[in-house]
């Protein structure tokens, strides 16, 4: 395959006779960690369908999960008291209850299940390690907004958890770009190797990354320059620049538009994930 790549003839004519400088850009991204942000319409749509699903659901087979006369059945009964009895001698102005298998069929069945975890008071004496080992512990979701979001720390990998973030660097602190590495005219190396070694040399030594393909995903032409894009994902570790003057940021698509050069961004914007 490599032979075929080298064997291809570029049809683009350059203004000078000099061979174009080949460079490799590492498009390293942090993939979303949490689920997508929903629009108001989407969340309403899911909520409506969920409620409809619950309304059309069959009656919970209590007799199967909680056998008569067991302690667990007692606990279930305490949490789920029987609905109002359809007394024939009583008039129900809001509609007569339609009781089947201990459920009022006019409404959706709302169940409260006995908790598998102990209450707050009992948990106080449990050590932190014990509680994290306990698989039946109460599941408390973490916040979707992290500390990095609040402090607007653009260098943190823990910002914008629902979005794909891309690494941009700046050598002088003014001009921002994707990490780009030029191929020397004497020594030829494969494009993905060039990007990887270059990335490690500027501070990606401790980063555990996954290279999607050795094939570049895009070619950007500029004045006597050919820029190939190698796509990869960061899996673990942190980007720590070797040179103190090197600045870096992890940015989402719409933020990249602010920092990258206009024409350049227009050419490469399809590579960035909208989510």
């Amino acid at each position: 395959m490599k032979g075929r790549i080298l064997g291809r003839i570029s049809l683009r004519a350059y203004s000078t006779d000099l061979k174009p400088v080949v460079s490799s850009t590492l498009l390293i991204s942090r993939t979303p960690i949490i689920s997508e942000e929903l629009t108001a319409f989407e969340s309403q749509y899911y909520k409506y369908n969920n409620e409809l699903w619950k309304r059309l659901m069959w009656t919970f087979p209590k007799w199967y999960y909680y056998k008569d006369g067991t302690i667990s059945e007692q606990m279930f009964k305490e949490l789920n008291p029987a609905p109002v009895f359809n007394n024939p001698n009583v008039d129900f102005p809001n509609g007569r209850p339609e009781i089947r298998q201990g459920r009022d069929r006019r409404f959706k069945q709302e169940l409260k299940l006995p908790k598998t975890y102990s209450t707050e008071v009992e948990r106080a004496d449990e050590t932190a390690a014990e509680s994290s080992d306990n698989l039946s512990r109460k599941i408390v979701p973490n916040s979707r907004i992290t500390k990095a979001d609040e402090t607007k720390d653009l260098t943190s990998l823990e910002r914008k958890l629902a979005r794909t973030l891309y690494l941009v660097i700046s050598l002088d602190g003014n001009k921002w770009s994707l990490p780009n590495f030029e191929m020397s005219r004497e020594e030829k190396v494969p494009l993905h190797k060039l990007a990887e070694t270059g990335f490690q040399s500027i501070g990606g030594e401790t980063v555990n990354y996954y290279n999607v393909s050795n094939t570049p995903c895009h070619l950007h032409h500029s004045e006597n320059k050919k820029e190939y894009f190698i796509k990869s994902h960061i899996l673990a570790g942190k980007f720590a620049p070797v040179d103190n003057s090197t600045k870096f940021m992890w940015l989402a698509k719409e933020e990249l538009q602010e920092y990258l050069e206009g024409a350049y961004y227009e050419d490469v914007k399809h590579l960035f994930n909208d989510v």
Partner: peptide, 12 residues
């Protein structure tokens, strides 16, 4: 039976 009852994170 409603199908799209919640967000599907694997699909996403």
């Amino acid at each position: 039976k409603p199908v799209e009852i919640s967000q599907d994170r694997v699909r996403e």
